[in-house]
C-alpha cells in the first residue's frame, strides 16, 4: 500500500528568485559564449524566469531540418526543481501530448540540479530521434514509429508549423 507523501517545493521559503536569476544569467552567458549547433535559448524578458528556446530536428530522423519552439519556465526553487518545458510548435511524437507537454524523466523525478538549460535542450533533441515507446503519451505515434515510418513522417510533417506561421 503506497502512502501518498507530499514532498517538494510547496511553500518552501526559497532564498528568493534573485539567486535563481543569477544562476540563469550564468547559463545564458554559457549558451551565448559556446553556441551549440541546432539549439538556441533566450529569456523572454529581463526577469529571466521564462525563456524561449528552439531545437533543430536531428539529421536522419523524421524531424530532420524542422525547427521546434519551446517555452521554459523556471520556479523560485530552480535549479533544485526542474523547469516546466513545453513544445510551442505542434509536434507529433510518442512522448509529447497534443498540448506540447513532454514526458521525460529528467524533467520529472530524475531532474538534477547539475543539469542546465543546455543539457535539457540537448536531451530533448536526442529524444526526437530516440523516443521512449515504453511509456508513450501519444500511443498512435508510438505505434507508427515502430511499424510504419512513412506514416509517422507524414504525421510529423502535417502537424509541424514553421515559426513564422506560429507567430501569425
Amino acid at each position: 500500500m503506497a502512502l501518498s507523501a507530499t514532498r517538494g517545493a510547496n511553500g518552501s521559503n526559497a532564498s528568493g528568485s534573485s539567486t535563481v536569476a543569477q544562476r540563469l544569467q550564468k547559463e545564458l552567458m554559457d549558451i551565448m559564449m559556446n553556441p551549440t549547433a541546432g539549439i538556441t535559448a533566450f529569456p523572454d524578458d529581463e526577469n529571466m524566469m521564462c525563456w524561449t528556446a528552439t531545437i533543430l530536428g536531428p539529421d536522419s530522423t523524421p524531424y530532420e531540418s524542422l525547427i521546434f519552439k519551446l517555452s521554459m519556465e523556471f520556479g523560485a526553487t530552480y535549479p533544485y526543481e526542474p523547469p516546466t518545458v513545453v513544445f510551442k510548435t505542434p509536434i507529433y511524437h510518442p512522448n509529447v501530448d497534443m498540448s506540447g507537454r513532454i514526458c521525460l524523466d529528467i524533467l520529472k523525478d530524475k531532474w538534477s540540479a547539475g543539469l542546465s538549460v543546455l543539457s535539457v535542450l540537448l536531451s530533448l533533441q536526442s529524444l526526437l530521434g530516440e523516443p521512449n515507446n515504453a511509456s508513450p503519451l501519444n500511443g498512435q505515434a508510438a505505434e507508427f514509429w515502430d511499424t510504419d515510418p512513412a506514416a509517422f513522417k507524414r504525421h510529423v510533417l502535417a502537424r509541424h508549423k514553421a515559426p513564422e506561421e506560429l507567430d501569425a
Partner: peptide
C-alpha cells in the same frame, strides 16, 4: 532552503 540545497547538491 536555497543555501542548504546548494550544499546538498554539491555533496551529491
Amino acid at each position: 532552503y536555497g543555501t542548504a540545497m546548494g550544499i546538498i547538491t554539491f555533496f551529491k
